[in-house]
Amino acid sequence: MSGHSHEAVYEGGYTRLQINRMGLWFFIISEAFLFLALHAYRLLALGTFKPENLNITLAGVMTIVLLLSSLTVHRAEKAIAHGDTRGLLRYLLLTMGLGVAFLALMGYEWSIAFREINPSSPYGSIFFLTTGSHALHLLSGLFILALVYLAARRGAYQPEDHWGVTAGALYWHFVDVVWLSVFLILYLV
């Protein structure tokens, strides 16, 4: 094992950063299929049926909140790319705040839906399972951003080396895109 190089150069010359990013992308593709399966149930079993008392306005507001959070997490990443750790911290906080706001709205939505949409009906079941799975993903996104935040406070990220931030941001964008599909499939079609 003498002189063993862990900076091995392989065909295509991928850097560790690119390798990590590729792994994350495959994970995201896989998770997309999870939501595809949920949507498949909704469309195959129920077609475009939906109960009348869905609160589309509220869901619209939630969509806007999440889209804003995608913007802020993007700014966070840009900040550290320019070496601005304080900007990074600020935008991370903002993103997490928007995420928490989304979850609060979601909780409110659920508390109404529990009364108005029977969870023991097919639509109710898929409604709670899909929004619940999304909320779990959002919660894990918050957890990741919190870890990134703590690491950033320790000064773990540099302009040329901030994989943790990139990963958290990419995952966060994914969770947002998933919400768009949930909004479309459960509320709009």
């Binding site: 896989s30 998770e31 299929f33 999870l34 595809l36 399966a37 949920l38 498949a40 149930y41 079993a45 969870p119 023991s120 009906s121 097919p122 109710g124 079941s125 898929i126 709670f128 399972l129």
Partner: peptide
């Protein structure tokens, strides 16, 4: 694989959480 995961999850929820998948 995600599909079979969802099929299993829905079955379990039907059994324990009174869902109606």
């Amino acid at each position: 694989t995600q599909f079979v995961g969802v099929a299993m999850l829905m079955t379990v929820l039907d059994r324990v959480a009174n869902t109606a998948f």
